[in-house]
Simulated scan of single mutants.
Amino acid sequence: MSRNAILLYVFLNVVLFFFISIFYYLSLTSSYPSVINIPKGSITSIITHLQKNNLDINRLDSILLNFFGSPQSGWIEIHPTNNITYETSKGDFLYQLTNSKAALKEITLIPGETMYFFIENISSTLGLDKKELWEAYQEYTSYPDGVILPNTYKVPLDIGPRYLMSYLIEQSMKEHKRNAIKILGRYDEKQWFNYITIASIIQKEAASKEEMPLIAAVIYNRLKIKMPLQMDGSLNYGEYSHQKVTPHRIRNDKSVYNTYKNYGIPPYPVGSASMDAIIATIKPADVDYLFFVKNASGGHSFSNNYKTHIDNINQ
């Protein structure tokens, strides 16, 4: 065998040994977190950060990562599991490290809920400061409530208060505009949020979707004859969202939301409103009802005169 042939044979064996070693190394299994926070910086600094957090990763991995790609910064979900850690091969972990998407959390605003409790929920879910959330919210809108549409939103774990509120408000305002154009054919913000304010009261008062157009009719009928709305739902604003409205509360609440003391609708929504409530506001039932009261079936009994209303109360 010639010298060149021997050298080629040795070289091929070295290469083969190298690839076998790398393959073996990448097949080694270990436990890794399901969600990892990747700092901004070079691959070397990322490896150092992960080592300090007791992950099974070393300098060789920094070399291998150059072939897999660079990890994105922020919280990323390495493996979709409910467990804190999971076991996988080194190769799969390095691949996931460079290809996984941002770790997301769900925050939900239910129809009728107020910003006060939505921010409480955000703070608890994402670990964000409530004061900073309020400051960010007020930076992007002048409406105390009713701007963010009820929905479930998926947001990154490491999102900050300002970006979060900017995103939620911007997306909701775009949706408000789309809905207005779809239903009304045009978008006038002042007119639209006048509807949202009425819809937010309907959302609080109605026992069902079917009742919403009827309650909308009651509101418009009362406004037409300059009768106070006297809706308990309007007093379920902010931190009072889940509190029963008592006579003491009615007498002592001096806010603009007290429709027992103030004529007309409040200047702002009292909470979030669903599309059903918004549509009911725009398309109320064609009835002459002025009163409604809860009945034994869990719904409301409606009437167009006070005498019948008192009878319904007694029943």
Rank of each mutant, 00 (worst) to 15 (best):
M1N: 11
S2N: 08
N4M: 12
L8K: 13
Y9T: 12
L12D: 11
V14H: 01
F17G: 12
F17N: 12
F18P: 03
S21P: 01
Y24R: 12
Y25Q: 01
I38C: 02
G41K: 03
S42Q: 03
I43L: 06
T44Q: 04
T44R: 03
L50M: 14
R59S: 15
D61W: 05
S73E: 15
E77I: 00
I78A: 06
H79D: 12
P80E: 06
I84K: 13
Y95K: 15
S100V: 09
A102I: 08
A103W: 07
I107C: 07
S123P: 00
S123I: 03
S124R: 12
S124D: 13
T125F: 06
K131M: 13
L133M: 13
A136T: 01
T141G: 12
V147W: 01
I148P: 05
P150L: 14
L157H: 04
P161M: 06
R162N: 13
S166M: 11
R178Q: 14
K182H: 09
D188K: 05
I198N: 03
A199K: 05
E205I: 08
E210Q: 14
A216K: 04
V218D: 03
I219E: 07
K226G: 03
Y237V: 07
Y240H: 13
H248W: 13
N252G: 02
Y260C: 09
Y260L: 10
Y263G: 09
I265R: 01
P266T: 09
M275N: 14
D276K: 12
D276Y: 08
A280I: 09
Y289P: 05
Y306W: 08
H309I: 10
